[in-house]
Design a binder for these strands. Sequence first.
DNA 1: CAAGCTATCAAGTTATCTCTTGAATAGTAT
DNA 2: ATACTATTCAAGAGATAACTTGATAGCTTG
Lengths: 221, 221
Amino acid sequence: MAARPKKHALFEAIALMGKAFASPVRLELLDLLAQAPRSVEELARASGQSTANASQHLQALHAAGMVTRARQGTHVRYSLAGEEALRLWLALRDTSAARLAEVERAARHYLGDDVEAISRDELIARLARGDIVLVDVRPAEEFAAAHIDGARSIPLAELEQRIAELQPDREIIAYCRGPFCAYAHEAVRTLHAAGRTARRLADGMPEWQLAEHTAAHDKAA
Amino acid sequence: MAARPKKHALFEAIALMGKAFASPVRLELLDLLAQAPRSVEELARASGQSTANASQHLQALHAAGMVTRARQGTHVRYSLAGEEALRLWLALRDTSAARLAEVERAARHYLGDDVEAISRDELIARLARGDIVLVDVRPAEEFAAAHIDGARSIPLAELEQRIAELQPDREIIAYCRGPFCAYAHEAVRTLHAAGRTARRLADGMPEWQLAEHTAAHDKAA
DNA sequence: CAAGCTATCAAGTTATCTCTTGAATAGTAT
DNA sequence: ATACTATTCAAGAGATAACTTGATAGCTTG
């Protein structure tokens, strides 16, 4: 018999993955990895951590089965461990936003004044009509890793200088890392200040990819 | 400016929910609550914790937005915080099983020798034909809280004495709390030992409920 | 093979988490 | 009111976790 210790071992094993989500630093690393695979150094810089600390957290994420890693010469490239891991992170993020008022509050505080958004479905329709300009305002490496078909890359830092590149008669749709990323909000404010018509996509790249993948899967079935 | 502290506050708020999943005790409490709402005392007993410790963990789960509570006279009844919370817990459980070999191993070790299972779809078909007996082998309170339509309740502890109640010419399908619950496995072994034909449902009550709800939702749309 | 860079390791400090114990609180029943 | 029960609170000991610092190991390049 002795079922309890065995049951306890099972929950303990699951909790190893759970621990991945218990630290804000690890969540930020997951969020960055949801955009693109990166080296330890890049992740450390992007998350404002020391290299050693980032490395330790990445190892914890690896032990938790949430990321994979591969040596590439002198670098180690960490990636999110497949679509499952991405789904789990997004589910936690969205559920926490739905159920914890503090998450909502912190998000509003970080994102600043709300900016008009358009849904994925509407974006698909407008892309089909071809009467908009779709701009990816994330850093160039993230665009390089994956982007929405038909988008052009103008990292937020360059946007103000490069507004002239955007066809003046068209509405501009900006997107970034997701609903809790400030880049698209900021981009739309910048574009409005320059007198352009602009909105943001309500969510970002990872959500778009997941939806595409799910749609392809449904069609196959 | 000063975006980093604001961003950090956002991840910190999300991590509050993440912490819910970082302790095996809390996971077991979530797993119990996925079956039925319960009082602190019942949860403490069922999880093998002291009342004070269970209470503390339940408060952590409450702060994390994963459970709700309501005073009922002298008791406090804790419940899982809606379908969202259930989905998140099941997603973590399943993803950890898929990505962490140790979870798989611990599950096999806890469940014992594998026992033939049937899928939800097959169960639906067999229920429609009416040529099986569906048995809920969870504790009676859990059956009372929710069960699959058409099932009868025979808690595992009583099964051996009550096999005669089950129509002898029919195959028996046993189900319990989910794929990582040992009750259905154990029930099928007991039934086989008594010379009956029996299989287990591959998953359990909460998964059935979610699937039903999703199906209803799809139909409405 | 020596220099230079990236990532990890090891050790130590501080903070956080877990569980226990004993007391306090809130509601019920006598 | 008083006793009783379920839950929570408060405080403390012991175990983990987080971050820093300085050293080490693995690749690449000259």
